[in-house]
Design a protein around this nucleic acid. Structure first.
Length: 291
DNA sequence: CATGAGCGA
């Protein structure tokens, strides 16, 4: 056995068999030529190889270079060369122009966090200032106490005497003292208005047709629910319950439909439906106690 | 397994 054949055996690799064979005899072939790309973006490559019969063949490959895109890319790449080095590269030898390196810097990613929690410690002062401001703005309309609670939370809410604020006593169509013009009365409050139809029920949020979805994967968000449910009909709301402490999904949510029929069809179709490797449970939600 | 947040002067 010669030294040559030993070397050949040691560097033999199945995947590169053809290339290796050509490499061995490559010195017999003319060198590879690359011409262009020319003004039309046409690039020509001429190379020589031995075919299966051991005959020398010339291979000419023409390819079109995307002129505009490459020009644009090059311009931006050239621009980047003038940037000052940053990160770990800033400490490297400036004469090393072709520096590519793996950074060992620690880059802190911003994690999802529960709403209302501080992003950074330094913002504590401005946050408490903000709280103080809203406490001053908070004045209960029933007991007039400032900075303690909103009207809806007033301890005297149920036994409070009627306030001077218009609540359920519509002004009649009489002349307003200040302007001399008739005071505006909304149509639903005018005499003879159909109280049952529009009016008070209209401005209540429609939380009917509320569908509860459980067994959601942790990374399912409201847009995903929307996408999943809106083919069944108009969706007024998609909600995913988020854990207040950790900020991650609690694995269930709600979807509200305009029409009860659409909601029922969604339940029929999507209950037991496989989504993100989990089997969804979709059923009617029991209405929330505080609505 | 499991039933929602925040609004507001």
């Amino acid at each position: 056995m010669t030294i040559d054949s030993n070397q050949k055996t040691s560097k033999f690799r199945w995947g590169e068999m053809d290339e290796d064979e050509n490499d061995d005899l490559g010195f017999l072939l003319p060198p590879k030529q690359v011409i262009g790309p020319d003004e039309n973006g046409l690039k020509t490559v001429i190379e020589y190889k031995f075919n299966d019969q051991g005959n020398k063949v010339k291979i000419t490959t023409k390819s079109r270079v995307r002129k505009l895109a490459s020009a644009r890319l090059n311009k931006r790449a050239v621009e980047r060369r003038s940037w000052p080095k940053f990160g770990d590269a800033a400490n490297e030898d400036a004469s090393n122009h072709h520096l590519t390196m793996v950074s060992t810097e620690e880059i802190a990613l911003e994690r999802p966090r529960p709403p209302g929690t501080k992003a950074e410690e330094s913002k504590g002062d401005s946050l408490s200032q903000l709280n103080n401001q809203s406490a001053v703005l908070m004045v209960c309309r029933i007991c007039k106490k400032k900075g303690d609670h909103w009207t809806s939370k007033c301890p005297y809410k149920d036994l409070a005497e009627p306030t001077d604020v218009f609540v359920d006593k519509p002004p009649t169509r009489e002349t307003s003292a200040s302007s001399g013009k008739p005071a505006y009365v909304p149509p639903s409050m005018r005499q003879g208005a159909d109280k049952s139809a529009s009016g008070s029920d209209m401005r209540r949020r429609n939380d009917e047709n509320s569908v509860r979805v459980t067994n959601l994967s942790e990374d399912t968000r409201e847009p995903d629910l929307m996408e999943l449910f809106h083919p069944f009909g108009a969706v007024t709301r998609a909600y995913v319950a988020i854990d207040q402490k950790t900020g991650v999904s609690r694995g269930f949510g709600f979807v509200n439909f305009v029409s009860r029929e659409d909601a029922q069809r969604a339940i029929n179709k999507l209950n037991g439906y496989g989504y993100d490797n989990l089997i969804l449970r979709v059923e009617w939600a029991t209405p929330r106690p505080t609505q």
